[in-house]
């Protein structure tokens, strides 16, 4: 073995490795192995589009689930590989019940409060399909049709 061209600095002064990959956060690993590292064209053509889609999926998760939801992007709730809930969309799934609970709770709060219109006019008489939202900007977010985005 030769390591001619390049100096290999002494490693004696280093602190011992503290890395325990078993406990390393999966998101930390994925953002490195999927998105970083030397990019070389191999013989096997991994479907680049699919990997990009996956990277987008993970990026969305990493960036902000809530922000994605505001934008109407909610495929992970219907993607069985990413969600433990059953996103059957038949109106009886845990998610839709939770959503309905939330909506009812907010309407009760609004009714109980009674004077809600003094501060946030128009919010209480929002159409019945939409939950009463805390921040007006969220209501402007487009609701897209649900389902997997491929």
């Amino acid at each position: 073995m030769t390591s001619g061209g390049l100096p290999v600095p002494g490693r004696t002064a280093r602190p011992p490795d503290t890395h325990r990959q078993e406990s390393t956060n999966l998101a930390d690993i994925l953002e490195r192995v999927l998105d970083k590292g030397i990019v070389i064209a191999g013989d096997i053509r991994v479907n680049v589009l699919d990997i990009e889609l996956l990277t987008i999926k993970i990026r969305l998760l990493v960036a902000s689930v809530d922000k994605a939801r505001e934008m109407g992007i909610d495929w992970w709730e219907h993607d069985t590989s990413l969600s433990s809930g059953n996103g059957s969309g038949d109106g009886t799934s845990p998610k839709s019940l939770a959503e309905e609970n939330r909506r009812l709770r907010e309407r009760i709060e609004a009714l109980e409060a009674g004077t809600v219109a003094e501060l946030e006019e128009g919010e209480a008489d929002e159409g019945e399909g939409e939950p009463v939202e805390e921040e007006p900007v969220r209501r402007t977010a487009a609701r897209r049709p649900q389902g997997r985005r491929r």
């Binding site: 192995v33 999927l34 990997i51």
Partner: peptide, 9 residues
Amino acid sequence: APVRLATLY
């Protein structure tokens, strides 16, 4: 230098 995941020959 780590190589990106799924580089095959």
